[in-house]
Design a protein around this nucleic acid. Sequence first.
DNA 1: TACAAATCTTGTACGTTGTCCAAGGTCATG
DNA 2: CATGACCTTGGACAACGTACAAGATTTGTA
Lengths: 197, 197
Amino acid sequence: MRAAAVHRRRGPRRSLSEDEILDAAFALLDGGGAGAASVRGIAARVGVAPNAVYTYFPDKAAVVAALVERLIGEVSHDVFADRSQPWRLRVQAVALELRQRLTAHPGAVPLMIGGRLNGPQALALHERLLELLAEAGLDPADAARTSYLLVVYVIGSVALAVTDADEPGPLPPEAERIEARHRAFAGTPADDFPRSA
Amino acid sequence: MRAAAVHRRRGPRRSLSEDEILDAAFALLDGGGAGAASVRGIAARVGVAPNAVYTYFPDKAAVVAALVERLIGEVSHDVFADRSQPWRLRVQAVALELRQRLTAHPGAVPLMIGGRLNGPQALALHERLLELLAEAGLDPADAARTSYLLVVYVIGSVALAVTDADEPGPLPPEAERIEARHRAFAGTPADDFPRSA
DNA sequence: TACAAATCTTGTACGTTGTCCAAGGTCATG
DNA sequence: CATGACCTTGGACAACGTACAAGATTTGTA
């Protein structure tokens, strides 16, 4: 409602955007593993001095937090709303999509372990999951446990898969990986089965 | 069988042992979090130059690998052998003990995520777990899945708990933590329930 | 239109990290 | 006693995250 909306900020225009920095970080992450996403590397990739990054993010932790947030934000929320599907299929779909997003950027997985998942996107996804599980008939406590187990398993599983693959490149989508998918298929809805029983 | 057993190695005696280095590393880990276990810090704590560490371990990765090995090796194997107990209780006991060992040294948990669990102690524990699950009637594939899920969940859960606690000190054994124990109790044997059904 | 204030980028620098290399000291063996 | 193997050390290097003081650039105001 302020006139500040039209008035641009004083000082020179920024030569980059936060998204460009995150893009560079993702590129480095995918090409060289988790260790390649250094502040200096990111700055070099976007063509600025290392310190320029600190104009956009106060800290390196903030950069990785934004990275994680963008990754989680890519998880489509359409599956949540599709009430024509049984809830178990929806939970499976969410878990699989999250897994897919993580395996798409393996280097980011070690980063999201060091930081807490407190961002808006992470909370939104958690909230949606809780809604979905509550809708399935679980009381809040069990829903919290189940979603926690789900997230821990998906993240942990991908994390272990990442550390097992020493090459920094993309994860090999070999048969081992397919087997992991099957595990997600079978393991995911299994947890709350006897809990409701 | 060689005479080299009596002959001591040439050169001056080592002023330390690998265990002393690991002790120092654990002390730093417990007191200052995962980041405090630097090579220089370890060396300073045992009273040698930073480079002396490389006489005992070729790499820092080897140090953390040995650290993780010792942690896993502390998990008692007695519970495995106690066949008077039902298998589910034994699995629970193992999971709880592993969890206890990890929470006893929270700083070590982030370290064990970066490295693969390939050491002898880790493999032995895995082997024992597989035996136990096979004895419970699971075919090898399901046993592998279940033990994988179990390990992933325990480690991932503690890892998330560690990152949520920003203070480097020991984890607060508050009610939240007790709730996590309950989760392990209820979640662990639940996974293979519908798998056998 | 000129000045002032706010903002971005950069150069430089500090402290810390893991790790290598050459030197010197110490011990068992010939 | 001397030789050869082994340990430790001092010093150094590259890379990391990050702080500080400039210079440059754009905007709001007089």
